[in-house]
Simulated scan of single mutants.
Amino acid sequence: MDAIYALVYGVVEGVTEFLPISSTGHLIVTGHLMGVPWTKEVKDTFEVVIQGGAILAVVAYYWRDLLGQARVVGHDKQVQQLWLGLVIACLPAAALGFAFSDEIKHYLFRPSVVAWALIVGGVIIWWLESRRDTSQVHRLEDIGVRRAALIGAVQCLALLWPGFSRSASSILGGMLMGLDRETATKFSFYLGIPTLGGAALVDFIKSRDLLGEIGYGTVAIGAVSSFAVAYLAIGWLLRFVATNNFKGFAVYRVVVGALILVLVYTGHLSNAGV
């Protein structure tokens, strides 16, 4: 059954990582619903590590752009500014994760917390999409270090409140900073490379023995399925935001959050930390 659990986890991670609906929240609830028998420490580590598969999907999807940027970064000021901004943007989340990761996992990785994060995030998305469009930035190279740093600060909301969604917080932060919807979405993909890639690598190095309890083959199944599904999800989301807003995701978040609360308060879903 471990292989089945890993496959389901990987598919859920791949579908939800880059959509503004919270991969962490969906993985927590998925683990509860499947009754995964792994220890809490193994599940927490596994969920973070398979994010590495989703991040590799970003690298694969944008490999031509990334290679082109690598070739000119030594003399192209705009590319240098873009990657300096990305590095600065990931630092707040990295610092918080280093300091409080274990406490957040222990106290906040539970369905009711996720449910309220989904609902509140959905309301914010609806509000933001109902405003008059004031976007001024239409290219990654024009974001600048200051905007990138502020987006990185907003991204911390996802770490502090499981279920809010890293992609949602970074996309919403980008839109609040004047990025148009497509540019904010693409920046969120890029920002995931150092943010999630670093977290996945650190957790893998720190917790190799824990992952050995379920076998590295099981981990590989989760990571590979996450990669394949995330690759498809990236292309779909980019096509979607070209002609649509995020209000549909706002409705989805509120409905799913309300459903989780009903299941928790009627006793059909355990609210214990996983």
Rank of each mutant, 00 (worst) to 15 (best):
Lys40Trp: 01
Ala93Ile: 01
Val36Phe: 11
Gly97Met: 04
Val36Asp: 14
Lys77Met: 11
Gln81Trp: 02
Leu96Gln: 07
Val49Asp: 12
Val59Phe: 09
Gly35Pro: 07
Val79Arg: 00
Thr39Asp: 14
Val79Ile: 15
Lys77Pro: 14
Ile50Cys: 08
Ala93Gln: 08
Pro37Trp: 11
Asp44Gly: 13
Pro37Cys: 07
Leu86Ser: 11
Leu82His: 10
Val73Leu: 13
Gln69Met: 10
Val79Glu: 06
Met34Pro: 03
Pro92Lys: 08
Gln78Glu: 01
Asp44Ile: 01
Ala93His: 00
Lys77Ala: 13
Gly53His: 02
Ala70Met: 12
Gln80Asp: 02
His75Ser: 14
Thr39Tyr: 03
Ala54Ser: 12
Ala70Gly: 05
Leu56Asp: 11
Ala60Gln: 10
Cys90Lys: 00
Val48Tyr: 09
Ala89Met: 13
Val58Trp: 04
Val49Gly: 00
Val87Ser: 04
Gly97Asp: 06
Trp38Lys: 01
Gln80Trp: 10
Val58Ser: 02
Gly52Met: 04
Gln78Val: 08
Gly35Ser: 12
Ala99Trp: 05
Ala94Thr: 11
Gly97Tyr: 11
Val49Leu: 08
His75Asp: 15
Ala70Ile: 13
Leu84His: 05
Trp38Gln: 05
Gln81Met: 09
Val48Lys: 01
Pro37Thr: 06
Arg64Gly: 03
Val42Leu: 03
Ala94Leu: 06
Trp63Thr: 09
Gln69Glu: 13
Leu84Lys: 13
Ala94Glu: 00
Thr39His: 04
Lys43Met: 04
Ala70His: 00
Thr45Met: 03
Ile88Lys: 08
Asp44Arg: 00
Thr39Trp: 08
Gln80Arg: 08
Leu67His: 14
Gly74Asn: 01
Ala60Asn: 02
Thr45Trp: 06
Tyr62Lys: 01
Gly74Cys: 04
Leu67Cys: 10
Pro37Leu: 04
Gly52Gln: 09
Trp38Ile: 02
Gln80Lys: 13
His75Glu: 15
Tyr61Ala: 01
Glu47Asp: 15
Gly85Arg: 05
Val36Glu: 07
Val73Glu: 09
Ala70Leu: 09
Gly74His: 00
Pro92Tyr: 11
Val58His: 02
Lys40Gly: 15
Gly74Leu: 00
Thr39Val: 13
Gln51Pro: 04
Asp44Met: 07
Pro92Thr: 03
His75Leu: 07
Ile55Phe: 14
Leu96Ser: 04
Cys90Pro: 08
Ala94Phe: 05
Gln81Arg: 15
Ile88Ser: 12
Leu96Cys: 10
Leu96Asp: 10
Gly97Cys: 05
Leu91Ser: 10
Asp65Gln: 13
Gln51Thr: 15
Ile88Glu: 05
Gly53Glu: 15
Val49Phe: 07
Val48Pro: 09
Trp63Glu: 12
Leu91Arg: 04
Thr39Gly: 05
Val79Ala: 06
Phe98Gln: 01
Ala94Arg: 01
Ala60Pro: 02
Gly97Arg: 04
Gln78Thr: 14
Gln81Lys: 15
Lys40Pro: 09
Gly97Val: 11
Leu67Ser: 15
Pro37Arg: 05
Val42Thr: 04
Lys40Leu: 07
Ala99Met: 14
Gly68Leu: 03
Leu82Phe: 08
Asp76Ala: 13
Arg71Lys: 08
Ala57Pro: 02
Leu86Lys: 01
Ala93Leu: 07
Trp38Asp: 03
Phe98Val: 05
Trp83Val: 09
Arg71Thr: 10
Glu41His: 14
Ala94Ser: 08
